[in-house]
Simulated scan of single mutants.
Amino acid sequence: MSDLLLVVTIAGERVALPAAAVESVVELDTLIPVPRAAPHIAGLSALRSRVLTVVDCRRSLELGASDRPSGIREAAVVEIDGHHYALIVDVVEDVVEALSDPVPVRAAMAPGWERASAGMVETESGPLLLVDVAALVSGAEAKAA
C-alpha cells in the first residue's frame, strides 16, 4: 500500500487521516456559532468564499470540548457529499506514507474512537489509528440514530 496519510493529534493522540480525503490544512480564527446545532459542531467559518461547517473532533469522539475555545485553531478541510467541513485538531504534524493496509484494531477503545476507527496502519514512525473522516463529521449522534 502506498496511500498518503495526514498525521494529526486529537485529544493528545497521534492518528492518521487519509490524505486523499483532505483538501487543505488551514488555521481558523473566527467561528460563527450555530444555534441548535449538534454538540460536536463548533460553528461556521469562511474559506475562499466557501462556508465551512466546523467540527470539533474532540466532541465528535465524545472526549469533551477542545482545549482552545477561542483563538486560532488548526483544521483539516474535507468534502463529504458536496459539503465542506473543517475538522478541528490539536496539531497537524506531517504527511507520511502508509506501509500497510488498515487492519482491525485488536484493543479496547473508548466508544468515540471505536466508532471513528477505520483500522490501524503501519508507518515509518510506527502504527497509527486511521480515522474515518465521515464518522468525525457525523458525530456521536449518528450512532444513536
Score class of each variant (00 low, 15 high):
residue 129 L to R: 08
residue 58 R to N: 04
residue 49 S to A: 14
residue 72 I to Q: 00
residue 70 S to G: 08
residue 115 R to I: 01
residue 6 L to D: 07
residue 28 L to R: 01
residue 14 R to C: 08
residue 99 L to D: 09
residue 130 L to E: 06
residue 29 D to A: 06
residue 36 R to S: 14
residue 114 E to A: 13
residue 143 K to E: 03
residue 39 P to G: 11
residue 99 L to W: 04
residue 52 L to Y: 03
residue 82 G to L: 06
residue 95 V to S: 09
residue 112 G to F: 01
residue 5 L to P: 07
residue 10 I to R: 09
residue 73 R to M: 10
residue 73 R to Q: 02
residue 6 L to Q: 14
residue 117 S to H: 02
residue 105 V to C: 06
residue 114 E to D: 04
residue 27 E to T: 15
residue 99 L to R: 15
residue 30 T to W: 07
residue 44 L to Q: 02
residue 66 S to V: 02
residue 125 S to V: 05
residue 59 R to K: 12
residue 95 V to A: 14
residue 70 S to C: 09
residue 133 V to E: 14
residue 105 V to E: 14
residue 42 A to M: 08
residue 14 R to A: 12
residue 55 V to F: 03
residue 61 L to R: 08
residue 4 L to I: 02
residue 48 R to T: 10
residue 103 V to W: 08
residue 41 I to V: 15
residue 45 S to V: 13
residue 67 D to V: 07
residue 47 L to A: 02
residue 76 A to H: 02
residue 118 A to K: 01
residue 54 V to G: 03
residue 30 T to I: 04
residue 76 A to N: 02
residue 122 E to A: 13
residue 70 S to M: 05
residue 89 V to K: 08
residue 2 S to H: 14
residue 106 R to T: 13
residue 89 V to T: 08
residue 89 V to F: 04
residue 7 V to C: 10
residue 110 A to G: 14
residue 120 M to A: 08
residue 98 A to P: 02
residue 115 R to G: 02
residue 10 I to M: 06
residue 39 P to K: 06
residue 13 E to A: 06
residue 22 V to Q: 03
residue 125 S to T: 13
residue 11 A to S: 10
residue 105 V to Y: 10
residue 46 A to W: 10
residue 123 T to N: 05
residue 131 V to F: 03
residue 84 H to K: 08
residue 123 T to M: 02
residue 59 R to A: 10
residue 86 A to I: 04
residue 72 I to D: 01
residue 77 V to F: 03
residue 118 A to F: 04
residue 53 T to P: 05
residue 64 G to N: 11
residue 73 R to I: 14
residue 121 V to W: 00
residue 41 I to D: 04
residue 138 S to G: 09
residue 5 L to T: 13
residue 72 I to P: 07
residue 38 A to R: 14
residue 90 D to M: 13
residue 143 K to C: 06
residue 52 L to E: 12
residue 99 L to K: 13
residue 25 V to T: 15
residue 11 A to W: 07
residue 100 S to W: 10
residue 63 L to A: 14
residue 81 D to V: 07
residue 5 L to I: 12
residue 58 R to D: 00
residue 118 A to I: 05
residue 138 S to A: 15
residue 99 L to T: 09
residue 85 Y to V: 10
residue 23 E to F: 07
residue 13 E to Y: 06
residue 102 P to M: 06
residue 88 I to A: 05
residue 13 E to K: 12
residue 20 A to S: 15
residue 78 V to T: 09
residue 96 V to D: 01
residue 30 T to C: 01
residue 124 E to P: 01
residue 66 S to K: 09
residue 99 L to A: 12
residue 89 V to I: 08
residue 48 R to L: 13
residue 126 G to Y: 04
residue 79 E to S: 15
residue 36 R to P: 11
residue 69 P to N: 00
residue 40 H to C: 04
residue 9 T to W: 02
residue 64 G to P: 11
residue 126 G to H: 03
residue 137 V to M: 00
residue 121 V to P: 02
residue 33 P to R: 00
residue 45 S to Q: 03
residue 83 H to D: 14
residue 140 A to K: 11
residue 65 A to C: 08
residue 58 R to H: 13
residue 118 A to Q: 03
residue 81 D to A: 15
residue 21 A to I: 00
residue 36 R to Y: 03
residue 38 A to V: 15
residue 7 V to S: 11
residue 48 R to E: 04
residue 141 E to G: 14
residue 142 A to G: 00
residue 127 P to R: 10
residue 53 T to Y: 05
